[in-house]
Write a protein that binds this DNA or RNA. Structure first.
Lengths: 246, 246
DNA sequence: CGTGTTAGATTGGTTCTACCAAAATAGAAA
DNA sequence: TTTCTATTTTGGTAGAACCAATCTAACACG
């Protein structure tokens, strides 16, 4: 993935040399590829990636158009990792902030079919509980929140959830190993959240989602020597008291 | 984009026919491509897209591994556009929900350099106010919020803001024409938001951001015959009272 | 028997060339 | 001027050849 970064940097230079503004068309692939020292095919992969991130706008037969001049900056955060765990820390912070809102809206609008999908997802999860491949379980758990996002029916919210709920194995991302007991605990949240959605209790759904995330974050802090962001850290400490009671 | 959907569906069938579970390796690209009736090249693009969305896990020299069995559902929402304005409606709703939180966090952590970037952005905006190219002004306005997102230093939040603040010209997206007076009004928000960031007033930054969005949403409702989502619609009506006073 | 090494096969990644399809453009005809 | 058509430009797909990381299994050694 490092190679792509170099190419995007070169591309940024070219864009800035040409003085391209948002909305302008950038050179055709056939001309651009040699300048970057890669094949057209590889360039296309990169442009597709940039399109997925909304930095560029590809129109068949017409050209590829620049959407924002802050291109380097958009890729930049990918390497500011002073902390090797920055990815997972950022992920949890973003999830802590955004997912409860998503759950709240989802509770208000989710349809029967989507509730059924969530049900299926939970069933798959519960089966996974008895296997020892914790990685799979975690990945199904992410699917649950993806489906939750779809419940809102809002395309942009779905995309946001996708971003937050997608672990990038190709990066050096932490793979969390969960104990059996912990898996059961977390699964209980899934059940409760689904129930809250069914009875349209938006507030409860949001609260449970946040609780789930904080619980998981605390577990990771303890077992993987990861220090969460201040925001999440404080939120965990605040809620710990309530957990004691249960 | 419709073709990709069909192929992903076929792929889902194959996966289910083979009884593949999350974690299993799916057939090699060379074997899979013919079964799907596409070239290996095209298949690779699709697999890359699925990887970006976290549905599969590609390992060079080893194979492509399935991560979740909910594959078809992940592509679905992209085509439910009964309402031609659904894109902009969804966009405003997502922005209304998410951006205030982003502004709040940004106010707490944004650095001097990034504040300077925002300042530059505002200067560019104010210059644009006197030209008649309202489209570009709007695009700079989006840059403002992009930079705001970067102020949080959280990679995932940045990506989220990118999604929400990026208009997709290739889709049939509405291009908003703003009157001179309206542009000045909206620009005033930029100045106020930047000031709030400078003095680290998180609450004020969040409130102003929300206000800005609702103001703009109301304008679009009136001038473009767009009916915003219920959530945004109600929020506008609630806040209208406060606007009267000013 | 166990273990480390190595050669070959497998698999994703890249390059190259040719061609297809949508879009933009220029020029002829009305 | 407007409208239509032919041409050019541009992104999209196809298929073959080759590179590089990985895995596999046979082999040699202790």
């Amino acid at each position: 993935m490092r190679k792509e970064r170099i190419i995007v940097d070169r591309l940024s230079e070219i864009i800035s040399d040409l003085g391209l503004q948002p909305g302008d068309r950038l050179p055709a692939e056939r001309n651009l590829a040699p300048d970057l020292g890669v094949s057209r095919n590889t360039l296309r992969n990169i442009l597709r990636m940039l399109e997925a991130r909304g930095l560029v706008n590809i129109r068949k037969g017409s050209g590829t158009y620049l959407r924002t001049r802050f291109m380097g900056a958009a890729i930049e955060p990918l390497e500011q990792r002073h902390n090797p765990h920055k990815l997972i820390v950022d992920r949890f912070e973003a999830a802590y902030l955004l997912l409860p809102l998503v759950a709240e809206q989802s509770a208000l609008r989710i349809g029967e079919r989507q509730l059924a999908d969530l049900q299926k997802c939970n069933v798959a999860l519960s089966r996974g509980l008895f296997s020892e491949e914790s990685e799979k379980v975690w990945s199904e758990s992410l699917s649950f929140f993806r489906l939750l996002g779809m419940g809102t029916g809002n395309e942009f919210i779905v995309r946001t959830v996708e971003q937050v709920c997608t672990i990038d194995i190709s990066a050096d991302e932490l793979v969390v190993k969960l104990s059996r007991r912990e898996r059961e605990k977390l699964f209980a949240y899934h059940v409760k959240i689904l129930h809250a959605l069914r009875v349209r209790d938006a507030e409860e759904a949001a609260w449970l989602t946040q609780d789930y995330l904080l619980h998981l974050a605390k577990y990771i802090e303890e077992h993987e020597q990861v220090r969460m962001s201040d925001l999440v850290f404080r939120a965990i400490r605040e809620r710990e008291g309530e957990w004691e009671g249960s």
